[in-house]
Design a binder for these strands. Structure first.
Lengths: 234, 234
DNA sequence: CACAAGGTTTAGGGAAGCCTAAACTTTTCT
DNA sequence: AGAAAAGTTTAGGCTTCCCTAAACCTTGTG
């Protein structure tokens, strides 16, 4: 009959990775996270995920409905956000204070996030001026777990003539980040959709005065804020 | 019959801690490190140490003569020095770049040293000007594993009238570090032995114009360089 | 020299995390 | 509905790293 131990205990590295993955999946899909999706995201066999799910549920961090998926408890969500904060502060610090190139901060942060103390992370954040987002534009959760999400849409969803500002790009694939940087598609860049092929065809953009073409798959990983949406509010 | 695998593989955190401990014990005592000493240093049962010894020997990092102790192989010594470099660079960086108090850098570095990449450590070292020692005066091994040890003796070994410069203090005990800082006994401080009680009695020192008394047990953890020794060479 | 004390190793066990293979549930397709 | 496909869980194994208890060397002492 062991349940919900570890009051404010520290979690293992793997456990933190699971919680992060579940958090992300919950955000993307509306519902609970599926075993298979967690397995794919972490590159781990589905059977192993079942095992960890049992352990996390015993610790009160997730709720598990067999064959239906898992959801974070408030406690689990808090733990996930703490890890995400760590990750994004570290990414920002590596880029700003230590000159890491933006396509490499993710991997290094992935290693460090499980070892860094909250104090260290807070000192890092303070040293670089408490940034609101990481180098890829993802919001950095506050110490209390609150996250301010800007209203954004996928670049891929824009039509011809639209004007927008790049808010955020997916941070996991280093090669993709390098390519986007070459195109000038960085958070903060102003882009204008010059032409849009029908359905899910490529987009022609004007970025920084240059015309660039970008496929829909890549464009799906770029989130932008449009002036109208910003004014209308979310 | 598996032996000496893992050519340049990365070691587990625990394994790195064992190698560090063995390195230190080899330095202090002349001979090989005893199971019990390793166990005590890492706060682990002696039986557990036997288990890890077997694993490290299989990986070619140490040589084990049953019931006689262990010695590092050149490969193991290199691995230990890499970890020690990581530890001391991180300590220095935390103190210099992030304002950590010197009694707290050790514990934080202990956590980080197993997760930080060589690139990160090198960037940290570069960012603070490639220091030669950590905040407690311990030398930072170079990337190639070379260490420059200054000739030092224990403060406790000085007689009345001796003048010396504090070179290094033991870094493990935070309370001790705070106390030494209060006395002004920091690396670089000039101390003069005003009086010395016979045998292992306390020392009266002049530090920074103030008279301080320090017991022999504490003084054994303070290493100093004397002008004479420096001139004569080690 | 024998024996007690102390240090070391083996035996056996446990938790975390991973794996593959097999069993089981749910969904989907005909 | 019934069967195939897809997804999930259980079963059984493995490695790392820790533990306690018991067996085993080595040493120092009477």
């Amino acid at each position: 009959m062991s349940a919900a131990r570890h009051p404010a205990d520290s979690l293992s590295g793997p456990a933190e990775d699971y919680l992060k993955a579940i958090y992300d999946l919950e955000q993307t899909r509306g519902a609970g996270a599926a075993t298979n999706d967690i397995a794919q995201r972490l590159d781990i066999a589905a059977a192993s995920v079942s095992g960890m799910i049992r352990r996390l549920a015993e610790h009160g961090l997730i709720e598990h409905e067999p064959y239906r998926g898992v959801r974070l408890t408030p406690q689990g969500r808090m733990a996930a956000l703490r890890t995400i904060r760590r990750h994004r502060v570290i990414e920002s610090y590596l880029a700003t204070a230590l000159g890491y190139p933006w396509d490499r901060v993710h991997d290094e942060a992935e290693l460090l996030e499980h070892a860094a103390s909250d104090e260290l992370v807070d000192r890092m954040a303070a040293a670089i001026g408490e940034p609101a987002t990481d180098p890829h534009g993802a919001p950095i959760p506050a110490r209390d777990g609150s996250v301010t999400e800007r209203p954004v849409i996928a670049l891929e969803a824009l039509g011809a003539g639209a004007v927008a500002v790049v808010a955020r790009v997916g941070d996991e694939d280093a090669a993709r980040l390098r390519y986007l940087a070459e195109l000038g598609i960085l958070p903060g860049a102003r882009v204008e959709v010059v032409n849009r092929a029908p359905f899910d065809g490529p987009l022609t953009l004007r970025v920084d005065g240059d015309e660039r073409t970008i496929g829909p798959a890549l464009a799906a990983h770029v989130l932008v804020a449009t002036p109208e949406r910003s004014l209308l509010g979310g």
